[in-house]
Simulated assay, not measured.
Amino acid sequence: MTDLRAAPARPGPGDAPTGSHASGLARARNAPTGAGRLRLLAWPGYLLALGWYLLTYGLPYSNDMVFVWLIGALIAGAAHGGGGWRGWLLVLRDWVPVMAVIWTYSLLRGYGAHTPWPVRYQPQLDIDTFLGGGETWTVRLQHWLYTPGLPHWYDYAAVAVYMSHFFVVFIVLAVLWRRHHTRFRQLLALYLTLTFVGFATYILYPADPPWLTAQEGHMPVHTRVVWDVLNGSGLPRAASVFENGSEFANDVAAMPSLHAAYPMMLALYFWPRASRPVRVLLAAYPAAMAFTLVYGGEHFIVDIVVGWAYAALICWGVPRLFGRRAARTAPTSAAEPAPTPTDPRR
């Protein structure tokens, strides 16, 4: 007679697995699939590729490369979040058109350097000379603070603030795209409107910046601080932003200063909902950019003030324009009170 107590029982189809069999099934279930491996490798792969690019070529300051790496980060985020192909397509749907618009603006901005109107410098120079009490603040600040060939800590800080112009708005837009798509569309509308209104002004009122005005002999010679510090830092890729002869370059696109306008746009847009610490940053960023632009010889004070005015007008006007348009296109039935239901007992 067979001893049934000594025979190991085989699990039936409905029995729960035990022992090594159970652990093997658990390992099979937990083994990463193709999609799981993609999720795990998305961010490490992106960061490795970005690190290689930075070490090989330096920081990507051109619009096309900034957008390539920004879109790459959003795709990595979509892959990590498990969005799959749908998440990738959403990234491309929303961001490739934006990249195309900004690239078109950059190209048109370069062509805008050749206009039939004379380039202006005297009104801006007169206003700045008046504000400086007989000397422009660019010349005064550099006389007090700048030592050619021996940059101080605040010179490096000025470089960081100036170069943030090429990244900050896009990074903020990317964060809003991930977290609050409605606000992403709102800020994008403000950014594009401000950009193209600025471009129209460049066409109608070409204007020299202080460094170019000095090169032409109309004001005391001074240093273009950001360019000088970057050249001395061994970062040729970064300094190439200022190279002449580029199809995207427009040295007479100084009025208004979009370097000043974008920080003010961000401050005005986020201010109503911002906490007190965030408001400190929102106020400090336009102020730091304004100081950098004047100290570095990039813009006259009046260029900055006009940029701030453009940002204020657009932040005030664009939401109202879209609000009125939405009110006109809303169905009239939505505004009418719903009819009172008939009492079935009558």
Results as ranks from 00 to 15, higher is better:
308 W>G: 12
32 P>Y: 09
316 W>G: 02
280 V>Y: 14
45 G>H: 09
200 A>P: 04
85 W>K: 11
174 A>R: 01
8 P>K: 00
134 G>A: 06
199 F>Q: 14
37 R>N: 09
309 A>S: 15
324 R>D: 02
38 L>W: 06
39 R>M: 12
111 Y>C: 00
67 F>H: 09
216 E>A: 14
266 L>C: 06
253 A>K: 01
292 T>D: 05
166 F>V: 08
24 G>W: 08
38 L>H: 04
97 P>H: 04
144 W>A: 02
192 L>W: 09
303 D>V: 07
217 G>H: 02
99 M>W: 14
114 H>C: 01
108 L>W: 13
130 F>N: 01
320 R>C: 10
132 G>H: 03
10 R>A: 14
206 P>S: 09
301 I>G: 14
183 R>G: 07
40 L>H: 10
146 Y>Q: 08
7 A>G: 00
221 V>W: 10
236 P>T: 06
122 Q>C: 03
154 Y>Q: 06
120 R>A: 09
29 R>E: 14
223 T>A: 08
184 F>V: 05
305 V>H: 14
336 E>S: 05
135 E>R: 07
302 V>H: 11
201 T>L: 15
296 G>V: 07
228 D>C: 02
179 R>F: 10
20 S>Y: 13
3 D>W: 04
235 L>W: 12
79 A>I: 11
56 T>D: 05
283 A>L: 15
139 V>G: 11
162 Y>Q: 03
249 A>D: 12
162 Y>H: 10
89 L>E: 08
93 R>E: 01
222 H>I: 09
102 I>R: 07
245 G>W: 01
233 S>P: 11
317 G>F: 09
328 R>S: 08
240 S>K: 11
290 A>H: 04
162 Y>S: 04
26 A>Q: 13
196 F>A: 01
96 V>L: 10
114 H>E: 01
230 L>G: 05
216 E>K: 15
296 G>H: 06
215 Q>L: 15
96 V>S: 00
304 I>R: 07
183 R>N: 06
66 V>W: 00
282 L>Q: 07
266 L>N: 03
142 Q>V: 04
90 L>Y: 00
247 E>S: 08
89 L>W: 07
40 L>M: 13
188 L>F: 14
233 S>A: 10
203 I>H: 00
295 Y>F: 14
273 R>S: 12
97 P>M: 04
125 L>F: 07
87 G>N: 04
335 A>C: 00
203 I>K: 00
144 W>S: 00
167 F>I: 08
251 D>G: 13
285 Y>K: 05
169 V>W: 08
210 P>D: 12
159 V>P: 02
107 L>P: 01
29 R>A: 15
74 L>W: 02
302 V>L: 15
286 P>S: 12
78 A>K: 11
176 L>G: 10
43 W>M: 04
192 L>D: 02
110 G>P: 13
125 L>H: 03
142 Q>I: 03
164 S>F: 02
243 E>T: 10
51 G>Y: 07
307 G>F: 13
28 A>T: 14
117 W>L: 09
297 G>H: 02
168 V>C: 12
340 T>V: 03
201 T>N: 12
97 P>Q: 05
88 W>L: 08
260 A>C: 13
96 V>N: 00
46 Y>C: 06
308 W>V: 04
15 D>P: 01
55 L>M: 12
189 A>F: 12
282 L>W: 08
131 L>S: 04
177 W>F: 15
265 M>R: 05
